[in-house]
């Protein structure tokens, strides 16, 4: 029983980081209706930004984190500006955006290898890594901190999207961009904001991944899991992305603990395929005609 509880706690902790990244996939999908595979690259560079702040600029951890968050937010905005907006302005098929995002993802990875180097790097010990005991359960302090940071960020994001005027505008634009313009909304501004929010949360996720694991140019691959989570939850749905991520995190840790860690990824992808077959719109999604 303790073993099960322990796995649930581990699963929620890793799921919370997935959630930080999957909300970015979902936010962008909800506005532009395509899966932005450059998102992993933004997360990876966010992780490097944090490292840069800590190791080379000597910033205290909160400032280094802020640098990572703002830096990757702006990077995502720039990414949209350069690689997606020209395609959008030409009203090209959504598939082109998807292909462009794959290109940007490869660019980010190789740019990092060329400029920073291909080796693995580790964060200095900025957060405590010891464990706390609750009854018979040992919970890593790091896991608790990660969970709290992720939960606070996700709550802020949810409030912004569902509880503010600008959030109304985001949801309206995601429903119908043309009509939103008739309200006086500037869709380019909304798209930029959405990319900033997606990039910023990915940046925080990148820092947390970096602290928990390591930092390396291909770490964007980790966001494939977050993408699966977004699909499972229903692409375009913010609560869906969070629930999907927590589900996936838990399912994964269970698979690793009770079957074999070699089966972990197999399990994640099988779950995604199952969801696509049984409920293509995901747990929280609405059926749409075209997905790219």
């Amino acid at each position: 029983m303790n073993m099960v509880l322990q796995q649930i706690i581990n699963g929620i902790s890793i799921g919370a980081v997935y959630a930080l990244i999957s909300v970015g996939y979902s936010l962008v999908y909800s506005i532009l209706k395509f899966s932005n595979f450059a998102h992993g690259g933004v997360m990876m560079l966010g992780s490097y930004f944090g490292l840069l702040g800590l190791q080379y600029l000597g910033l205290p951890f909160p400032l280094a984190m802020a640098l990572a968050i703002v830096g990757s937010g702006l990077l995502a905005v720039l990414n949209e500006r350069v690689a997606y907006r020209p395609i959008r302005n030409r009203n090209s098929p959504l598939l082109y955006l998807l292909i462009s995002s794959l290109g940007v993802s490869i660019f980010f990875e190789n740019f990092t290898i060329v400029t920073i180097g291909p080796n693995f790097r580790t964060y200095p010990p900025v957060l405590p890594t010891d464990s706390l005991m609750f009854g018979g359960l040992s919970v890593g302090r790091l896991d608790i901190i990660i969970f709290v940071m992720a939960a606070v960020t996700l709550s802020l994001l949810t409030w912004l999207v569902y509880g503010t005027k600008i959030g109304n505008a985001i949801r309206a634009t995601s429903y119908n961009m043309r009509v939103s313009r008739l309200m006086g909304i500037n869709p380019d501004m909304i798209v930029a904001l959405v990319f900033f929010l997606a990039g910023a949360s990915a940046g925080l996720g990148g820092v947390l991944f970096g602290i928990k694991y390591t930092v390396w140019p291909q770490m964007g691959i980790l966001t494939l899991k977050a993408f699966i989570a977004a699909v499972v939850g229903g692409l375009g749905s913010l609560p869906g992305a969070v629930v999907g991520a927590l589900l996936l995190g838990t399912a994964e840790t269970f698979a690793a603990a009770f079957v074999s860690s070699a089966f972990r990824d197999l399990f994640s992808f099988a779950l995604m395929i199952l969801i696509i077959l049984v409920r293509p719109a995901g747990l929280f999604g609405k059926i749409t005609e075209e997905k790219a």
Binding site: K165, N168, A169, R171, A172, S174, Y175, N176, V179, S180, L182, M183, G184, I185
Partner: peptide, 22 residues
């Protein structure tokens, strides 16, 4: 606009408030 183009995913009040966006 024609065809009653409301924001179906928003509440009635949120729709009205969006009219006052600017």
């Amino acid at each position: 606009p024609e065809g009653r183009q409301v924001f179906a995913n928003l509440t009635v009040e949120e729709n009205l408030l969006l009219g006052a966006y600017l």
